[in-house]
Amino acid sequence: MCLALPCRVVELRPDDMAVIDMAGVGKEISLALVDDVVVGDYVIVHVGYALTRLDPDEADKTLALFAELGEAALQETTAG
C-alpha cells in the first residue's frame, strides 16, 4: 500500500507548497504535513504530499549494516 518515494526539495513556494526533484523529474507537492523543511531536504512523498523527512545519515547507516551483515555471512559460507 501507499506508493511513497524519497524526493529532494529544490524550491519552496507559498502556501506550504514545494517543488521536488527525483532523477530529473520535477513535481509540485504539498508540505502541509511537515514543518521546517528547507531546500535540499529529502521528504517521502505520497499522493502529492510529503509525509515526513528522510534522514540521509540513517539511510547510510542502514545500507552499511546490510553490507556488514552480508559480508559476514558470505565469508562464513566460504569459510564453512
Binding site: P56, L63, F66, G70
Partner: peptide, 23 residues
C-alpha cells in the same frame, strides 16, 4: 534515484540472502 536504487542492489541482496540462510 537516490535512496531507492541503493536499496535494490543485487550484491547486497546476495549477502543478506546468505545471512538469512545462516540464521
Amino acid at each position: 534515484m537516490r535512496f531507492i536504487d541503493e536499496f535494490r542492489d543485487g550484491e547486497l541482496a546476495r549477502g543478506l540472502a546468505a545471512a538469512i540462510r545462516q540464521h
